[in-house]
Structure formats: C-alpha cells, structure tokens
C-alpha cells in the first residue's frame, strides 16, 4: 500500500494579538513607526509527523483549540505550514461544516448552481447532477423559492444534498471531514445522509475525520491520532486511544 498523505515535522505558527487588534490605516501607521503592536507567536501545531496509507480512514480527536481544524486546513492546502513538509497524492476535497455558501436571497435552483460551481463543478456538470440533487433533498416543491423562506432543516437538507452530490462527482482521492455528521435534518433524512456519507468513507477514498463524536470515530476509523495543544499525544488503535482520551 502506498502513502496518500505524509507529514514530516509540520509546525504552524500564528501571530496572535494580545489585546484588541486595531486594523485601521492610521493605527497601522502609528504602530508601524512606534513598533509597538503587541503580538506573540502561537504554535497551533508543533512538529506533527504522520502518514496515512491510501484507503485508510484516520480519525483525529482532541479538545477545542488543539489544532484539529488547523491540521485539516494544512492538509487541504488552505494554510501553508510554517515549517515542515506536506505531501499528498490525488485530489483533495475538504468539507468543513455545513451551512456556508448559500445565498439567502437566491432561489434554491440558483443556489445549487452557485454552490456547485464553488465546489468545482462546471455548469454542464451541475446540469447533469441537478435532478439527483433535488431528488435527494426532497424539496422539489420549493425549487423556485428563495432560501430565506426555508426552515433551518430545509437549508441543511439542501446544503448536504449539494455537497454530497458534488463530492460524488469529483470523486476525491482524499476526503477531509470536519464535523459534517451533525446533519440536523429529521430522522429520515439523517439516516439517508449517514448512509450516503458511509458510502464515501468505506468506498476506498482516504479519509481524515476530525470529530468530537467518538462513536463515529470508533465506527469508521482504522487509526486515531490524539492532538493536544498542537502535539500528537497518542496514535494507534481507536479503542485504546479513545479510552485514554476519555480517562484524561
């Protein structure tokens, strides 16, 4: 088996302000000349190294602020690592939470086109997938209704349907998930959604899944990495690591 993701000694440094950061031009000029902007370095990730075999499902657990999302963003290429090296093989899709990207003043039909193109599909590809998306969401009746009149459950349904079908189309080699399971639709839809997600996770793609839902991690992941304050605290068998994580 070849490796799909390889990280060696990756660190990520952020400059964070100690007190309220002023971002106006005048304040910028003043602090530039006085050299007095209080900032300190914050290491979000410290020398993280691991590799993931292709087809493997890796879980990431850790408290809030332990660096899970930073790690996923580095893998996705959204952030550049401050030091260290990242190598990935194949195309990557990163899903970080639902609910972004919908324009509330547009109709459902227009939103599907907008989301689709943001997620990397061409207009023609979206046309092909359009019927499936609408069918999956079960919102045929509201195709020309504007999103702001949707209930929150309907928004979640639409969002999930678009994302999952775009995913289906782009067939990523590496899938990065950051808490997308909390679907929030009704029981029927949630069941359908989880089943669809399962298809991807077990369907041969390499998956990195960061979640606070430990049952999901246990169920789908072959291996778990435990992040604590930017460092790998433990890695290995899901049962073992999660037991240790909970007993801390």
């Amino acid at each position: 088996m070849d490796t799909a993701i390889k990280l060696s000694n990756v660190s990520k440094k952020f400059k964070i302000g100690c007190h309220k950061e002023q971002k106006t031009a005048l304040a910028g000029i003043i602090s530039f000349f006085s050299g007095k902007e209080a900032k300190k370095d914050f290491l979000a990730l410290k020398n993280v190294s691991f590799s993931v075999r292709s087809g493997e499902n890796l879980g990431i657990v850790g408290r809030n602020g332990s660096g899970k999302s930073t790690l996923l963003r580095i893998l996705a290429g959204v952030y550049e690592p401050s030091s260290g090296e990242v190598t990935t093989k194949g195309n990557i899709v990163c899903l970080m939470g639902l609910g972004q990207g919908l324009s509330h003043k547009l109709t459902m039909r227009e939103n599907i086109y907008l989301m689709g193109s943001v997620l990397g599909l061409s207009q023609r590809d979206i046309k092909i997938k359009f019927a499936d998306i609408v069918d999956f969401s079960g919102l045929e009746k509201f195709l020309d209704t504007k999103i702001y009149q949707f209930s929150s459950g309907m928004v979640i349904r639409l969002n999930f349907s678009v994302m999952i079908h775009c995913l289906h189309y782009s067939k990523p080699d590496i899938l990065l998930l950051d808490e997308v399971f909390g679907s929030g639709g009704d029981i029927d839809f949630e069941e359908k959604a989880i089943k669809k997600m399962e298809e991807f996770i077990t369907g041969g793609a390499t998956v990195v899944l960061a979640s606070h839902d430990l049952d999901i991690i246990k169920k789908y992941c072959d291996r778990v990495i435990w992040l604590n304050e930017g460092e790998i605290f433990g890695a290995g068998n899901p049962q073992e690591i999660i037991f240790k994580y909970l007993s801390l």
């Binding site: 963003r73 959204v78 970080m96 972004q100 943001v118 997620l119």
Partner: peptide, 9 residues
Amino acid sequence: AAFIKSMRI
C-alpha cells in the same frame, strides 16, 4: 472569507 477559509478555491 467563508469559502477561502474552508476550501482550496
């Protein structure tokens, strides 16, 4: 920002 922060776009 929402797009730029969450995916490689």
